[in-house]
Amino acid sequence: MCVPVALTPPIKPMLAEARRDLPPEGALPGGLAFEPKPDGFRAIVFARPGLVMVQSRRGADLTASFPDIAEAAAAVAAEDLVLDGELVVPHEGRLDFIELQHRARRRGRKAIQAASEKPAHLIVFDVLQIAGAELLELPYSRRRGHLEDLFARHTLKAPFTLCPATTDRRQAQDWLDPSWGTVGIEGVVVKGQSQPVLLDQRAWVKVRSRTTAEAIIASVTGPVDNPTTLLLGRYDTDGRLRLVARTTPLPTAMRRDLAQRLVLGGPEHPWTGRRFSAGWGTQTELHHQPVRPELVAEFLADTAVDAGRFRHPVVFQRVRDDLVPDDIPLMDR
C-alpha cells in the first residue's frame, strides 16, 4: 500500500552486496530481476513542488553541479516524484566516469557550460514516491510497473532514461561479458521481485564484469621480502612507466613466492621518489618500494578503467614467465 507521506532529503538509498557470481534462483524474495550496472554516480532526484534536488548516495547536494538534471526535474515537479538512479555522462560512445567527476566539481556558470558541452543523464531504475506518496513498502515488481508507466506516458523523458531490466538469466550473463565494459556497463545488479525498498541496507546483489590482463610488477607495499600488495605499470608511447593498477592484499603463499623473485629497485628506477595516492579519489599517500620492472603479472580486474588505469583494486593471479615487459602493449599518452 502506498503511504501518503512524502520523503525528505537526505535519504540513504538501498544498496547492493558485491558477489563474484549471479545468485541462484530463489536467493532473493519473489524471484530474480536483473539490471545492467552503468558506470556513474548513484543519485536520488527529488522532483516536487517547492523542492528540486539531486542528492548523492552519501547525502550531498549535487543540484548546482547538474543544472540540466535539475531543470528536467523541475519540469515534472507537479508529479511529486522521488527517483533513484545513476548519473552518467556519455562521451565518445561510452559512459565517461572522468567527465562525470569533472562535472560534479563545477558550480555556477562553469556548471551551466559543462551541462551544455557534456550533458548528463539519469538512468532511472526505481521510483520511491509518486504524487507525494512514498512507495517503499511496495514490491520491486510493482514499483517497476509504476516507473515504466511514467516513461510510457512520456512524463519522464530525456535526460531521464529507463534502466533496462529482465528476468532472463541469459541476458544477465550477456551483460557480464567484459565487452560491455567498453561502453560503460560495469556488471549486473540483482533484485528480488517482491523486495520492498530497504533504505541503507545491502539487500540487492551486485556482480561486476571481470577480465584478465597483464602488466609489469613495478613496486610493492610492505617489504620486498614480504609484499602486501603489488603496484603494476605499463610503458606509454613516450617510454614512461605509468601506474595502471594496484592489487588487493596478496595471500601468504603468493607473498612467499614473490619474495624469492622480486629485487629491490635502485635509484635509477622510474618510480623512485614518485608519490601515488592510496586509493581512487583520495589524497592519502601510498608508501611503496620500487622493484626491478622485470616480471609480468596476470591479474583479474573489473571493467572500470579510466585513461588506462583500473579504478578498483585488481586480483593478482600469477607471474607470466612466458612474457617479458616488452610484450606488454604500450599505453597511449
Results as ranks from 00 to 15, higher is better:
275 R>G: 12
261 R>W: 10
79 E>K: 07
64 A>D: 15
130 I>F: 07
10 P>Q: 04
321 D>F: 15
222 G>C: 00
248 T>D: 08
255 R>Y: 12
237 T>R: 15
48 R>E: 15
141 S>I: 11
40 G>I: 01
185 I>R: 01
93 G>M: 08
228 T>Q: 13
22 L>P: 01
177 D>T: 03
260 Q>G: 08
224 V>C: 13
322 D>I: 09
223 P>W: 05
241 L>D: 04
81 L>V: 13
56 S>P: 15
303 T>I: 03
162 L>E: 11
289 Q>W: 13
4 P>C: 07
333 R>K: 15
181 G>M: 01
292 R>I: 07
312 H>Q: 15
303 T>N: 02
17 E>V: 11
245 A>Q: 04
328 I>M: 02
170 R>D: 11
255 R>L: 10
213 A>F: 02
325 P>D: 04
116 S>G: 15
79 E>W: 03
326 D>V: 08
200 D>C: 09
9 P>M: 09
213 A>T: 03
50 G>K: 05
246 R>W: 06
119 P>E: 10
319 V>T: 13
216 I>R: 06
292 R>F: 05
218 A>L: 08
115 A>C: 10
91 H>T: 13
93 G>W: 03
216 I>E: 03
311 R>G: 01
58 R>M: 14
287 H>N: 12
4 P>H: 01
329 P>F: 02
285 E>H: 09
218 A>Y: 00
174 D>R: 05
2 C>H: 14
133 A>L: 14
331 M>W: 13
173 Q>W: 15
105 R>D: 15
10 P>D: 03
161 T>E: 14
295 L>E: 06
164 P>S: 09
318 R>V: 13
71 E>P: 00
241 L>Q: 03
5 V>M: 10
226 N>I: 11
249 P>A: 09
141 S>R: 14
315 V>Q: 07
256 R>H: 14
241 L>K: 04
317 Q>G: 09
137 E>P: 04
186 E>P: 00
327 D>F: 00
280 W>S: 04
16 A>H: 12
181 G>I: 00
297 A>Y: 00
103 R>C: 03
298 E>S: 10
33 A>Q: 01
195 Q>D: 12
26 G>D: 03
14 M>D: 07
136 L>S: 12
35 E>R: 02
72 A>Q: 04
237 T>D: 10
167 T>M: 10
166 T>K: 07
50 G>L: 08
187 G>S: 07
247 T>N: 03
332 D>M: 11
333 R>A: 15
66 F>D: 12
170 R>M: 07
177 D>C: 01
99 E>G: 11
166 T>D: 09
291 V>N: 01
138 L>G: 08
169 R>V: 06
147 L>V: 11
184 G>M: 00
195 Q>L: 13
127 V>W: 02
191 K>S: 08
330 L>Y: 03
87 L>M: 05
30 G>R: 06
119 P>C: 11
248 T>V: 11
300 L>H: 06
201 Q>G: 07
196 P>K: 05
50 G>V: 09
120 A>M: 10
137 E>T: 14
154 H>D: 14
84 D>Q: 04
